[in-house]
Design a protein around this nucleic acid. Structure first.
Lengths: 229, 229
DNA sequence: TCGTTAACCTAACGGCGTCAACCTAGGGAG
DNA sequence: CTCCCTAGGTTGACGCCGTTAGGTTAACGA
């Protein structure tokens, strides 16, 4: 418990809500796990009695969800401001920004995206972020580098980015070869896969022929650009 | 509580361990969430007093981990028996088998793969499964359809499959367009991406040129095969 | 028959989320 | 200035949880 908070003025009852959220956020960042976020601990840190939490949150889950949602506005901003003259490169930037965001806020990301109960569905901020990714994919489709419904493609790419982030967050003890190289590889694979995969729908030659075609493809493109998707 | 269990014979104390695991597994499958798996509930269902659980498990987490690990032997078997004359198709089969397994055992998969504490790292059975996937990738590399270290490629593909499974499990309320089509799309994207992505390392032409090359690639391959990667 | 001991139970502790009931300070009405 | 009403909390308790210490019972060998 920090200190006994002075009672708010008459119209300012909602002040406590913000202070509770701040206290909970601090607890989450300090301990690195949501198990430390007990109603009692949050109330004590805010300098208030335990049941006072229920003046502003229906239950513990609502508090946890609210505090985790606070950082998600940042994600929409991060993804939205990924710009590049080339739509394919822009999409890659979006993917890397998404993964970086998840790794920067592992607890919040895990609570909101890796547990079934909390949030009753994908958070709205994440849906906005998904909208941006759909736009980026649509630009790729219009540029002729991808083919298919942008929504489905974006969903698949989102799934790939989520898989990378989720594994890195949930399995920190795994002997990852190199974190950043891994992220780059996954973003690259997803991007090129989204470009090539749907074109091959239904058609699938034997590996020998596929390998030859890939070699020819590789030989055709000699241009070098610094950034990768 | 079901019934008062009759005490085991003198050398058969370990019998209770199996009965506790069975009771816990039933609870998990019936309720669909690990929150129902309290030490008291498991003991009651096994017809035994609560502290008796601690005769065979150090704490609740060890019990939860043990019961979740029980289904994972199946995964190694499922992935290992994915065969196909074509290595690229075989890899696709492995990916789909992995995702299907995760969706068939959502609680166990989430507990072991989507929470940081439980298990102290990736379960051994999952590592064995990962070994099979590395083998499948290596075959693709040797066939010339992929390029790079098989371990890293397999890790990236594992991440993609995990992302698909994890999203489907953790966000059941999301309006997924079509579950099976989504899985197919992701497996296809990952496969072709792993084939094409590493070849493009460092090289990245503008989208216009990339689109043209992709069109040429598509035109070259007219062969149709029923199964897709 | 009896003692040993493996197998299990009883009782309890502290912490948790949550609720019903109570208090209290501070602003408006008279 | 006084009173009172209500927004903004607090006190105390309930039931459930994981976990522990110490007691009890029954199957076997001698």
């Amino acid at each position: 418990m920090t200190e006994k908070r002075v009672r708010a003025r008459r119209g300012d009852g909602a002040l406590l809500r913000e202070e509770l959220l701040r206290a909970a956020e601090e607890l989450l960042d300090e301990t690195g796990t949501e198990e430390a976020l007990t109603v009692r601990a949050v109330a004590a840190r805010a300098g208030v009695s335990t049941p006072s939490v229920y003046l502003h949150f229906a239950d513990k889950e609502e508090l946890l969800e609210a505090v985790c949602l606070r950082v998600w506005d940042e994600l929409g901003r991060l993804v939205a401001e990924c710009r590049d003259p080339d739509p394919f490169l822009r999409l890659g930037r979006c993917g890397r920004a998404y993964i970086r965001f998840a790794l920067d806020h592992p607890v919040q990301y895990r609570v909101l995206m890796m547990t079934p109960s909390a949030g009753e569905g994908v958070p709205p901020a994440a849906q906005a972020c998904f909208g941006y990714m759909v736009d980026a994919v649509r630009a790729c489709v219009e540029a002729g580098v991808m083919r298919g419904e942008p929504e489905r493609l974006a969903l698949a790419l989102w799934s790939a980015a989520h898989g990378c982030a989720a594994l890195l967050i949930a399995q920190p003890s795994f002997p990852w070869p190199d974190r950043d190289a891994m992220i780059d590889l996954i973003v690259r694979i997803s991007g090129f896969g989204a470009a090539l995969g749907p074109r091959m729908a239904g058609a699938l030659p034997p590996s020998r022929e596929l390998a030859a075609a890939l070699d020819a493809f590789e030989a055709r493109l000699g241009g070098q650009l610094p950034e990768r998707p």
